Computed example of a mutant assay.
Amino acid sequence: MIKKNNKTIIGVDHGYGYIKTSKTITKSGINEMIIEPPFNEDILIYGGSVYAIGQHRTEQPADKTENMDYYILTLAAIAKEMKEHNMRRVNDVIIAAGLPYSFMAKQALNFKKYLTKQKNVEFTFEGVKYSINIKGAEIYPQGFPMIALNLGKNKSTEESIVDIGSRTIDILTFINGKPIYDKCFSIDKMGTLDCVDIINKYYLSEYQERIDEEVIQNIFQNKIVSLPDDRIKFVKKVIKFYINNVCKQLDAKGIKYNVTFCGGGATVLKNYGPTIDSSCKIDDDIYGNAKGYELLAYNTIK
């Protein structure tokens, strides 16, 4: 959250796997409930409807304006960010958000309208009433915030950002502050959730049972899990297969040197990927995009 000219900028990274602000992270999961439960944890009430937020990831369409899910998830994300700052009411909110690079031309305007369709919004999250006045929204390509945060030290050198997300991998390449368009693109359906699907496919074939997604996410992060060693070794083998394939595709596109890897998949690359060139680096701050969106909006607002 950043303040400028009496406006409050809140960055929201609308991932297919997780939705993040500069300080919070929630699974991109939403389930509408018939009645309000006796507990209020993860419960959001808006427009007379009751939703459980982030308990289980739910499949989301490529077009985030297709249903109300990402709108409700945005309200939950904003509420969590407001809670971090001990706020219950905020006026003149600017939502700073992003879309995959290849989706921008088609979806950016509709996404902006989607996020700002109601100016004065009141809702309850986890038993607390929130009131926000939405002044506007700024939409940027995913990965672009990391350029603002990481690049520019040697502008004469071609530099790339590779944002490995849950669904897409977004690549942005700049030289002398200008984009190189044939090296700016998205690879759809090759994010970390696609790796989860690959693991489940081969795990089912090998052991005739499924593996919980939460277990896979923990293995991504090299956390301890309650699986036999041989099964953990098998999952790690599939992860290495996936991340090596990602690196091969990037190499084929000439994305190999002076690269900053970011997004949720940056941790997977760090833990399981091949050795990267010394000119490259890994930024595994999962809040990086949301922080960057806020900085970009801060510089955009007059």
Rank of each mutant, 00 (worst) to 15 (best):
K291P: 03
I30E: 04
Y287S: 08
L250K: 06
Q118K: 12
G165K: 11
Y293V: 07
E158V: 13
R231V: 05
D69A: 09
F261N: 01
K106Q: 13
N200F: 02
A290N: 10
G165V: 09
I2R: 12
P274V: 03
A52G: 09
N299T: 04
H14M: 09
D197L: 15
K302S: 00
D285T: 00
I169W: 10
D230F: 12
V268N: 02
D13P: 12
E32S: 11
V235S: 09
M33A: 06
I34K: 09
G136T: 10
K155D: 09
K106V: 09
S22K: 12
T300V: 03
S28Q: 06
H56I: 13
Y287K: 11
E32Q: 14
C280W: 07
Y287N: 14
D42H: 14
L109V: 03
V196T: 15
D230R: 11
P141V: 10
E206N: 05
I9Y: 07
N271E: 06
A76I: 06
M33H: 10
N271H: 14
Q107E: 11
Q217F: 05
D229S: 15
S226Y: 10
V215S: 05
G264I: 02
L75E: 11
R167A: 10
L295C: 07
I282H: 01
G98Y: 01
Y16S: 03
E158P: 11
M1G: 05
K189L: 12
V196R: 13
M68R: 03
M68A: 03
V196E: 14
D230N: 08
T192F: 08
N31V: 15
F144C: 04
C184D: 12
Y51F: 15
N86T: 13
K223C: 08
N258R: 07
G165I: 10
I301A: 02
V90Y: 01
A96E: 06
I53P: 06
I224S: 05
S131I: 07
E36R: 14
A148Y: 11
Q221N: 12
T157S: 08
R231Q: 15
S166R: 03
L99T: 05
N91A: 13
Y202I: 04
T157Y: 11
K3H: 08
S156C: 08
V196G: 13
A297N: 08
I53W: 06
L99I: 06
F174K: 02
F220M: 03
K129N: 10
K253N: 02
K291G: 01
K236L: 00
V246K: 03
T300D: 04
E36M: 12
A96V: 07
M146Y: 08
G288Q: 01
G54R: 14
S279W: 07
A297H: 06
R89I: 14
G292R: 00
D194H: 15
T26L: 13
S186T: 14
P145H: 08
E126L: 02
F125A: 00
T8Q: 04
I171C: 11
I78T: 10
R210G: 06
V93P: 09
G292D: 02
M87H: 10
D69W: 04
Y298F: 14
Y71T: 13
K23I: 12
M104A: 01
M87E: 15
G177D: 03
M190I: 15
Y257N: 14
I232A: 01
L296W: 07
I19Y: 05
K155M: 05
Q55D: 06
C195K: 15
G98E: 00
